[in-house]
Design a protein around this nucleic acid. Structure first.
Lengths: 204, 204
DNA sequence: TGCGTCATGTAACGGGTTACATGATTAT
DNA sequence: ATAATCATGTAACCCGTTACATGACGCA
């Protein structure tokens, strides 16, 4: 059960309320790692408290309760971290859709891939700015924060995905062009300039 | 509900039995995109048949039933493909664990990261061989198969992840070294050679 | 004949999503 | 005042995992 350990992990950084944790989940984990709603988080916090892995350390306005991880909570988190399973669950609907693109017409598939690449470039740009900001605020000697680690992961993932999308796009375009050329014995590649890819383009 | 569309997608390539689809899921989708067991697949196939999106086209030994996608199934698949949600579910326990590494001692975190990088390098090597084989069997003019697309995605993902793991490892090492140096005014970096990274190492 | 694989099914349980529900506090 | 946000809770439903269950077929 990963939700439980995700919560312990976030609480290991600093105490937080269910509300805070919901936001933190969205901001830090949702995109790359794990997703959870408040409707799951509140009950789980109650259970964690009942099991003595977290405790309420403050109460605020509007019934706000701030939780902190306990020593037993830290033990449980460490135990979990040091005992990874052999295989990991992965669920990623975007990737599923990309893999099923072959069920569309080449033109539609290409349009989707362009959309994905563009959306990713935008996210990449936003993240790049965010990272610059993060790096400016922390001194060059500072330890890499979890946020910085995640941002770096995001940077690299976005780049990888949009590169792949462009690669896939071009492969579809190439074979479509070749296909029609060999079928028709007509229409040489015309003015189709090979777009130089911005970065590494491995495995032809 | 993505399972349903994943099944339609796989059946769009060629007819298959529940058993075949279970294997295909494992081989093609499990690692990067989606996971499902036979206990989920068989009932879903029954429902899909009841909804007229697939049909039984052959019966074989041991009660084997081969399903094929119907025209209505293709319509539904296309409709789904062309209407992506704004945000996508992601669930990846490995990444969650990597993000929570900051809860461990630097040495333990570094050991984990080395483990991840090494495991990924091994997978990368295996996939590289597989791709070479795939590319040799298909002519250079052949259209990129779904398998080839997925393999390329895997190649790039593995590289990205193991690069990130090494980056994170080195950042932890650097700050640990600096931290102890400034705390102790002792032990200059000794013989720690900066490992040249095999590939691009962006965003210092 | 016995082992491995092919082949399907389902019940119970637990996790996750959606929707409904409420109300306090703060800022404009 | 009133809108936005803070803050929590829970019920119903659906999805997914684990475990149990069965048996046919092919090969050595």
């Amino acid at each position: 059960m990963s939700l439980r350990h995700a919560l312990l992990g976030l609480l290991a950084e600093e105490p937080a309320s269910g509300y805070d944790l919901t936001k933190k989940f969205e901001r830090l984990l949702q995109r790359y790692a794990w997703h959870a709603q408040h409707s799951q988080i509140y009950p789980e916090l109650t259970k964690l408290a009942a099991d003595g892995l977290v405790e309420v350390v403050a109460e605020g306005p509007r019934g706000r309760r701030t939780y902190a991880i306990t020593d037993r909570g830290r033990d449980e988190l460490r135990r979990w971290m040091l005992n990874p399973p052999e295989t990991f669950t992965v669920r990623n609907e975007l990737v599923l859709r990309l893999f099923l693109l072959y069920t569309l017409e080449p033109d539609q598939a290409k349009a989707m891939l362009r959309g994905v690449a563009d959306a990713n470039d935008k996210e990449l740009q936003a993240l790049t700015d965010r990272v610059r900001e993060l790096d400016a605020n922390a001194g060059p000697e500072a330890p890499p924060s979890m946020q910085r680690m995640i941002a770096e992961f995001g940077l690299r993932s976005f780049r990888t995905l949009s590169d792949w999308a462009r690669w896939a796009h071009d492969r579809i375009e190439d074979t479509a062009a070749k296909g029609s050329r060999t079928r028709n014995r007509v229409k040489p590649p015309a003015g189709r300039a090979k777009r130089p890819s911005r970065r590494t383009s491995p495995a032809s």
